[in-house]
């Protein structure tokens, strides 16, 4: 059963536009799939290779600006930007990794955080190129959301399957070895610098692609949105942690939960508070309704605390534990 779960989910995702006919639901699903890609990108460098990164926004933003500037400055189709955005991000990841991979653990994490913030400031200040805080507005190619949906679905499938394939090869084993112990890995003949660079570049590539896709889909970006520390970088980490750090399907599950939770709060518990306010006419409820839509960060915080306490390996990593809590497990036969 568990073996077929990804396949069932895939089929459901493919036929989704036939079921979810309204644009709101389609938009939500596009967001979920984007988060699947960003989460997978974070997972390969942080979850599998153990180099915790706060830099998802840097690559996401650079990808988005690549697509935006292709249209805004070069007058080309932003789709060309989408095509090269992954490569542009790799061009950024290369010197960045070269310099900062001599740092380990939290120090590396801090440098990635700085990278995102530096790029955000550059995008804000360099007005002649990026338009600064005004942002970039381009004309969307399609009115319907369906083409975008299938594009981001394709990217999501590509990244998840790609990571699954990679983790079964020499690269995957080397990534895990580096996560577990860099010095031991080095003594086993693993060129840790090279394989960390490889991992970072894969991560940068897919994060950049989805950034560009965001640009062509939304049609508008500004530095605050695409280089956002807490809306992109931290969210990417939360998707990874909730779903399961270092698991292949973790980011998929994490993306559904995090986007769902964000939407749940944004709509005031799917309109529950608004309805309550109208029914009871109590001032307190009306005030609460106003604030609850901005309280998603609080919800994230509580969720992360619960996940770390009870499911330290995330939902996918501790799947057996979740199942065991609901279904009394049959006694396992002792294998000898």
């Amino acid at each position: 059963m568990k073996k077929y779960l990804p396949l069932i989910l895939l089929i459901l995702l493919i036929i989704f536009p036939l079921i979810g006919r309204d644009d709101y639901h389609r938009h939500l699903m596009i967001l979920v799939l984007m988060w699947v890609v960003i989460g997978t990108g974070w997972n390969i460098i942080a979850g599998c290779t153990g180099q915790v990164s706060f830099g998802a926004s840097a690559f996401f933003g650079v990808g988005a600006y690549t697509a935006g500037l292709f249209s805004f400055k070069l007058g080309l189709s932003p789709w060309w930007g989408l095509a090269v955005s992954g490569l542009v991000c790799m061009a950024l990841a290369f010197p960045f990794g070269w310099i900062s991979f001599r740092l380990r653990g939290p120090y590396f994490a801090l440098v990635t955080l700085a990278l995102g913030e530096i790029l955000r400031h550059i995008a804000t200040v360099w007005e002649s190129l990026t338009g600064g805080m005004v942002g970039i507005l381009i004309v969307q190619t399609y009115v319907s959301k369906v083409p975008y949906y299938y594009m981001v679905l394709a990217l999501a499938i590509l990244s998840v399957v790609g990571v699954k394939v990679i983790m079964g090869t020499k690269w995957g084993y080397y990534f895990l070895s580096i996560r577990e112990d860099q010095d031991a890995a080095e003594s086993l003949g693993i060129n840790t610098q090279f394989y960390k660079m490889l991992s970072l570049n894969i991560s940068a590539f897919i994060t950049g692609m989805v950034g560009a896709l965001y640009m062509v889909y939304m049609g508008f970006i500004d530095p605050k949105v695409v280089f956002s520390l807490h809306d992109i970088s931290i969210m990417a980490i939360l998707v990874g942690i909730v779903g399961g750090v270092g698991t292949i399907y973790g980011p998929v599950v994490g993306a559904f939960i995090m986007v769902g939770l964000q939407e749940f709060f944004r709509t005031g518990f799917f309109g529950l508070f608004k309805w309550l306010g109208a029914v009871t006419d109590a001032q307190a409820v009306k005030v609460a309704a106003k604030y609850v839509s901005e309280a998603h960060v609080l919800g994230f915080g509580i969720l992360v605390v619960l996940v770390i306490l009870y499911l330290p390996n995330g939902i996918v990593g501790d799947w057996g534990k979740i199942i065991g809590a609901f279904i009394p497990r049959r006694k396992k036969e002792v294998q000898r």
């Binding site: 020499k170 084993y173 080397y174 895990l176 070895s177 996560r179 577990e180 112990d181 010095d183 031991a184 890995a185 086993l188 003949g189 693993i190």
Partner: peptide, 18 residues
């Protein structure tokens, strides 16, 4: 310095990849 969160087999496979 075992690679802790990997199985014994995976530890040895990682080494054999050299």
């Amino acid at each position: 310095r075992p690679l802790r969160r990997m199985t014994v087999l995976d530890n040895v496979i990682a080494a054999a990849f050299s």
